[in-house]
Amino acid sequence: MPISRIAIGRREEATHPDALRAALAEFISTLIFVFAGQGSGMAFSKLTSDGSTTPAGLVAAALAHGFGLFVAVSVGANISGGHVNPAVTFGAFVGGNITLLRGILYWIAQLLGSVVACLLLRFATGGLSTGYFGLTSGVGVWNAFVLEIVMTFGLVYTVYATAIDPKKGSLGTIAPIAIGFIVGANILAGGPFDGASMNPAVSFGPALVSWEWTNHWVYWAGPLVGGALAGLIYEFFFICHTHEPIASGDY
């Protein structure tokens, strides 16, 4: 059972050089991802006089986030596992593939990376607004909550299938691009309704810098529930538990 493999971790892990290096890698990867994704939206709005909600803007956002995540996961994979997302870290934790203490380090690094990326964007663009995630007209909070659960489930399930599963074999070589593809596809599907976050860190940075917290809980609760469900289901049904839990640095 995945639950039996959940571990708090040793207190020394919080200051171990390997864990700190992994946290730094998560900070840098998340900064790269948020800077590219959020920055592309700001650039498109500037070029089109705030036309980021057009079909072309939606496609641009999907491509920028997909490409950015592909790179962010790739550069962090050999150090931290390239989570770049608190929901991915949480899904790995409930599946017994990362300790709680290491997961907390990742969360702190991911949130800081997002905030720094948004601050850099605001400075580099002369004070332009970074925007923030919000619901569109006609979309209720519970609609968005379910949407975030489903989209994040697909993302974390993809992470498990291509990166965490010990039986993945050569499939692991395409993990970053598969993860980028599913995020891009989900943005095309859910972007017009709630922005398609799938990532609490991606929502947190713009919300903090813009100081806009309306319905912000949706962008935490939905992804965390979706990530946890994906981790539990994949671990319980598809991973052979004769294998030892893999180290987080191995994926």
Score class of each variant (00 low, 15 high):
N199Q: 12
G140I: 11
T162P: 06
Q110F: 12
L112A: 10
C118D: 04
A161T: 14
I164P: 01
A189H: 08
P166M: 10
T152W: 03
G205T: 05
N199D: 13
A201L: 05
V159C: 05
I164Y: 02
G180K: 00
Y106L: 09
V183N: 01
V150M: 13
I179T: 04
G127I: 00
V139P: 00
F193T: 13
I174Q: 09
D165Y: 05
G138Y: 10
T130V: 15
W107K: 06
I149N: 02
M151Y: 13
I187G: 07
V115I: 15
V159F: 06
M151G: 10
A185L: 15
A175I: 05
A144H: 03
T130G: 02
W217I: 09
L147M: 13
G154T: 09
F193M: 14
V150R: 10
G169N: 14
I187D: 00
V159W: 03
L111D: 06
V139R: 03
K168W: 04
P206T: 08
L208V: 15
L112Y: 10
D165E: 08
R122M: 06
G138R: 11
W211L: 14
A175F: 01
G195A: 05
F193P: 09
A109K: 03
V183T: 11
L111G: 11
I187T: 07
W142R: 10
G138K: 10
G131Q: 03
F181A: 14
F204H: 04
A207Q: 03
G205H: 03
S129D: 09
T214N: 15
L121R: 00
L188R: 06
W217Q: 05
W142D: 13
L120N: 03
G131F: 02
L128P: 00
K168N: 13
V115E: 02
I177W: 09
N186W: 09
F123P: 04
Y106T: 04
F133E: 01
A178H: 06
G154Q: 07
A109S: 10
V116K: 05
N186G: 12
C118R: 00
Y157G: 09
A178K: 07
T136H: 15
S210A: 14
E212F: 12
G195T: 07
N186E: 12
F123W: 14
L111W: 10
F145E: 05
L155A: 11
F153T: 01
W142V: 14
P206E: 04
V202T: 10
S137E: 15
N199H: 10
L147F: 12
G190Y: 08
V159M: 07
Q110L: 10
P200N: 09
L135M: 11
L171K: 14
P192D: 01
T162N: 08
W107D: 05
F145Y: 14
W142Q: 12
T162G: 08
A124S: 12
G126M: 01
V150P: 07
W142N: 12
L105R: 02
A175L: 06
P200T: 11
L128Q: 01
G154V: 10
V159A: 04
G190P: 07
